[in-house]
């Protein structure tokens, strides 16, 4: 397979802490489980964490830095995931790389990785400065992650503007950490509000899920467990992967995802009365 056939997708958000790296790790595993040869590139050289979320932090020998310097081959730097051999991680190099790394360098790396992959996911650093520009230079399409909060949506909007001006297409949205109860009580921006404001197609909707923290603790992305055993967030990430591959998977309706007796009772009543 040649370089042009890999889909190179930037995963970005502008604001930090909204779930870029978590999405990259889970989406990477989910795509690999579907049989796609998937590579994830940690482009967050300053504050790298993708290795940790994938549980690969102890297996890193070489990084993107050595690949660029020509002191190792790409195959030596790529860390294969044990349970999911279709997935490989290209670790971020030393933070000092930020002094000299250029957009062309990221393009070179992504093109090399793309030669042996179907999907290349680039985990973008927060912010809209150099690190973002480097990472974006290598991507053809983008997934913007945001949460239904003012600051996250505002920053996402800024990033979307920059992606548009770079001609990155398509740009799709993943709305993370959705709290159905707060949305129902109108104490949070709704899914409709966010998609209206950002004017992007919705690729996925991930409910707030404590299992995400548990999986991070263990270094085992939720999508490793598969669809059946999965928590709500695991199902959401797997659905993102399926939609990305062109499958038509309906989005969950947050109002139907409310747990608790009152919500169940409400559903029962509305089902039997209307």
């Amino acid at each position: 397979m040649n370089a042009t056939s890999a889909r190179t997708i930037l995963i970005c958000s502008g604001k930090g802490g909204v779930g870029k790296t978590t999405l990259t790790a889970n989406l990477g595993i989910a795509l690999a489980r579907q049989g796609a040869r998937t590579a994830v590139i940690d482009a967050d050289f300053g504050l790298r964490n993708l290795d940790l979320l994938l549980g690969l932090e102890n297996r890193i020998v070489y990084t993107a830095q050595e690949v660029l310097a020509g002191s190792c081959r790409l195959e030596q730097a790529l860390v294969k995931h044990k349970q999911e051999p279709n997935l490989a991680l290209l670790p971020a190099g030393n933070p000092r790389m930020l002094d000299w790394l250029k957009p062309e360098d990221m393009k070179t790396i992504a093109a090399q990785v793309g030669q042996q992959s179907d999907y290349v996911l680039i985990d973008c650093p927060a912010g809209v400065e150099g690190g973002f520009r480097n990472a974006a230079a290598a991507a053809e399409e983008a997934i913007v992650v945001t949460t239904p909060e003012l600051s996250a949506v505002r920053d996402a909007d800024r990033v979307i503007g920059l992606l548009n001006s770079q001609g990155i297409q398509p740009i799709q949205l993943v709305l993370n950490r959705v709290r159905p109860k707060m949305m129902a009580n109108q104490e949070m921006l709704t899914v409709q509000d966010v998609t209206d404001i950002l004017a992007l197609p919705l690729l996925g909707l991930v409910l707030e899920d404590e299992q995400v923290i548990v999986s991070t603790n263990r270094g085992e992305p939720l999508t490793l467990q598969g669809h059946g055993a999965g928590s709500p967030a695991a199902r959401a990430y797997i659905n993102v992967a399926r939609r990305l591959c062109g499958e038509d998977v309906p989005l969950v309706d947050p109002s139907k995802e409310r747990s608790g007796l009152r919500a169940k009772l409400g559903r029962l009543i509305s089902k039997n009365l209307f």
Binding site: L150, M183, Q186, E187, M188, L189, T190, I197
Partner: peptide, 15 residues
């Protein structure tokens, strides 16, 4: 008004 609505209005203005 619900804080979600306030958030939406503030966001639209700032954007």
């Amino acid at each position: 008004q619900a804080s979600g609505e306030t958030a939406k209005q503030r966001l639209q203005l700032v954007l």
